[in-house]
Design a binder for these strands. Structure first.
Lengths: 331, 331
DNA sequence: CGGTCTCATGAAACCGGTTTCAACCGTAAC
DNA sequence: GTTACGGTTGAAACCGGTTTCATGAGACCG
């Protein structure tokens, strides 16, 4: 491998000009006489000179990169998140460094390490401790996604309270009596808010909610695990509200595999409206959230030169009724 | 934000020692007298000095980071890949920069940009052009995963030929006659190899394979899309071989949702053996591949000081027979 | 024709660390 | 008592760029 990179000074030497001139030609910031310009460009071309990120970052005191941190990257949710973020970062010519902390113990240390490779960082709720966020925010600009703002950083989240509308729909419009909730509050701020909304819907309709949620993760396999606890029980619920689409689909698969009819024997709902939700049979009733915009907004907050933290930004969501809750339409 | 970072020279000044001494204390490379050491450490502690990545990387001519590049990050496959990679990188104290190119047009440029933020790069097959790989390999060490080695870089892949054993099992042991293949050859080297193995199994048993595969992507929703083309047709296949577990599960969900019995009405198989495969009902027949080890091996090749590219390394896979192909066991 | 203004250019400082080199200390050996 | 040696320490060079500042040449003006 050509470890012997051509440096700016060597180019200068070969072209018979000063290092400053090479830098000016390379960046195009200041006019250089056509003659010298041509000579420098030819040497650059011939020897394949490429400015080193090292030197440039050091001199400019800027990395030209943004960090994106979140817990895992199991499903379409995070995929969508990254794409939204990258698209926005591309606008300003920044690169994106992604860090997925798989609930590893040393996540906080890794995040701090990432903090001095980037100019700003978007952190997904429930990923790292508040202390660590504060430490990072003391150093670079930080935006948290799907969580609350802090004194030193803004936040962007989605309107989880539509979960209340969804739950009310099940209780009131369809008349289901025994609902279950799949997801682990405290696991992430989003799930916590959805569980709260689920409880609020019960309270406002004077129904008794389940004492405990089914505490599993957010992946599809977690939906299957929840199924084992819910579907084989004697007092099977007549509707299951899942914290996200992935678990809902895992649960749906398990229910169908057991020969249950959805929604007749059991209704199932999700949250996200990922592509598979519309394609499943029955199609999944869910809440659509603008994941891409969530990430894009976070990226924008990081690069925009506004001084004050913008506080909490909350993006709207939309209730999507399909077959899996018992609504007519597509079965 | 405390943009006014404490620099090494300021620490030296405040502690009344030379910059060199601060560096030595900070790195612990060379013995320093307890007295000075103590004084320096106190100043560091008090003012929260943290060596800048800039300067260190520049001086050491080393980033302390590895790059990981792959097409998307929809499912557990990539999640597992990253975890395996990170675990190995952690051993040597390197950070990991992840780049997910969502089949964007400018991926190659982004990869080249990443190339000078890291000391080595693992690239997943089917992500970037051969030219770009060569360009990167000219600069830093490169390993490709799930693809073939090139003149300047090693490769690590898994034994896709177990797909032949799987297909033969369907044809010979179960006697299925009309098989379909879900996946897009040429999309990725892995899928290409699996399609080839699927064809080879037909040839070796003198059966006629389908003329064309069902060309869809590798996500779960692609399995549902494949279902629309396969399940409603008049000449429905009696067994469907999917390029990976995700599409197989999407297909399974669609089949069950249509009221079909699996495997009686239609058999379905996958590839990967992700967690959900064992939990589905019926459980999914598949080929287990060591994703974690794949990534760990790639990471090891990047940091190990061996000079020669190691050529192609192929990791073993294992056929996993479960209910979805018609085998007894769990239904 | 002299003076000022503009513009291209190079010398040098700087970004924030690491490392070589030489000087210096005290101690052990002869 | 002098010399050799081992171990600390600071000065300075270096990593690879960017940028300020001063200089000198040429253009323009009066």
């Amino acid at each position: 491998m050509g470890n012997s990179r051509v440096t700016l000074r060597r180019v200068a030497e070969m072209a018979g000009v000063s290092p400053a001139t090479v830098s000016r030609v390379s960046r195009g910031t200041v006019p250089v006489s056509p003659e010298l310009r041509e000579r420098v460009l030819r040497v650059i071309e011939e020897h394949g000179y490429k400015p080193s990120h090292f030197g440039r970052a050091l001199a400019e005191r800027r990395h030209g990169a943004l960090g994106l941190v979140f817990p895992g990257l199991s499903g379409p949710y995070f995929s969508e998140l990254i794409q939204g973020f990258e698209a926005e970062a591309l606008e300003t010519g920044d690169s994106v460094l992604v860090l997925a902390s798989h609930s590893r113990a040393d996540t906080d240390a890794t995040v701090l390490d990432l903090a001095d490779r980037v100019d700003g960082m978007a952190i997904h709720g429930g990923t790292v401790s508040a202390d660590t966020i504060a430490a990072v925010a003391a150093q670079i600009r930080v935006v948290v996604m799907a969580s609350e703002a802090g004194p030193a950083h803004a936040s962007v989240s989605v309107a989880n309270d539509n979960m209340k509308a969804l739950t009310r729909h099940l209780l009131v419009d369809h008349g289901y009596r025994r609902l279950a909730f799949v997801g682990t509050p405290d696991g992430s701020p989003d799930v916590t808010a959805r569980w709260q909304a689920f409880l609020a819907a019960h309270k406002s309709t004077r129904r008794k909610p389940p004492a405990e949620p089914i505490r599993v993760g957010l992946q599809q396999s977690d939906g299957a695990i929840a199924a084992e606890r819910l579907l084989d029980a004697t007092d099977r619920p007549d509707a299951v509200v899942c914290a996200n689409d992935e678990t809902a689909l895992g649960l749906l698969l398990s229910a169908l595999g057991r020969g249950l009819r959805v929604p007749q024997d059991i209704a199932i709902t999700g949250f996200d409206d990922m592509p598979m939700a519309a394609l499943a049979r029955p199609a999944l009733t869910t809440v659509r959230q603008p994941i891409r915009e969530l990430a894009a907004t976070a990226a924008r907050l990081l690069v925009d030169p506004l001084e004050e933290p913008a506080g909490d930004i909350i993006l709207p969501t939309e209730l999507v009724l399909r077959g899996s809750c018992g609504c007519g339409g597509a079965t």
